[in-house]
Design a protein around this nucleic acid. Sequence first.
DNA 1: TCCATGTAGACAAGTTGCTTGTCCATGTAG
DNA 2: CTACATGGACAAGCAACTTGTCTACATGGA
Lengths: 146, 146
Amino acid sequence: MDDALTFSALVLALSGRLVQEIHAQVSRQGFEDLRPAHGFAFARISFGGATTADLAEHLGVTKQAAAQLVEELVRKGYVVRRPHPRDARARLLELTDEGWAATRAADQAAREAVAPWREELGEARFQELVADLTRLAPQGPIRPAW
Amino acid sequence: MDDALTFSALVLALSGRLVQEIHAQVSRQGFEDLRPAHGFAFARISFGGATTADLAEHLGVTKQAAAQLVEELVRKGYVVRRPHPRDARARLLELTDEGWAATRAADQAAREAVAPWREELGEARFQELVADLTRLAPQGPIRPAW
DNA sequence: TCCATGTAGACAAGTTGCTTGTCCATGTAG
DNA sequence: CTACATGGACAAGCAACTTGTCTACATGGA
């Protein structure tokens, strides 16, 4: 019954730890001017074909908030704005080499953060865990803040 | 290999959805002046024996931030400050009836948010999932923001 | 082709939840 | 009882987000 409550608390606690550890490791790798929220932006931009408005929807924030975030990432050299091939109003967002480097650092940090859990559960149960969670796969915006 | 990345993304996405749905439901129940961060405070205060400093550590924020949050909850009638029996500096935090009502509403909302996932996986696998996550049980502060 | 409506993005101002800095009263260890 | 630590409050500042408004361009219908 109250497993539902336990489950909620566990998921929230795990995600908090994940974010915290990934951010700390990415900072240690030299990307000290990046915050966790930027990671969610990188994820969308690296996927390709993203405009500022797309990013806003992905992050679940207003267009203005996304525009400010993009402006910051451009200023810091992680992102460039290119003209959109079919829409003169829009600008396509792309990661720079530095942006890709930060993305790789975050991926690696995620692997390292998960590694001890993987070991704790053993490979077989970890695979089941991933499979279970995948079946609950959510769609829609990823909300980096609450 | 990259299951670690998948796992991270899934946990983050799930927790985002959870927070979002619980908050929406709690608002619909009439607690429109509460934000998700308050839930983490309620969790610690309902546990008992909490001072503002305890709360700050639990939430992973500064004492001043916790004090402001407590002040807001007191003003809105969810929390009262009582003198501490053994420390004249400190004040014990307690939930009011309204605070308990909000806590119950959040618990119920969590159950409802998890219910479809529980059904999707089936009771047996859901139990395994909870068991696995419990083994990864984190300690330390719950960080409601990043 | 022209017009009405919708959308991408920028500029500006305001809100808010958090921070740092400082202070006092009380507790605690030597 | 002296030195230092801790709980909490007051004040000011900051940073990420919001709402509101505007221009340029896109799109669909008459």
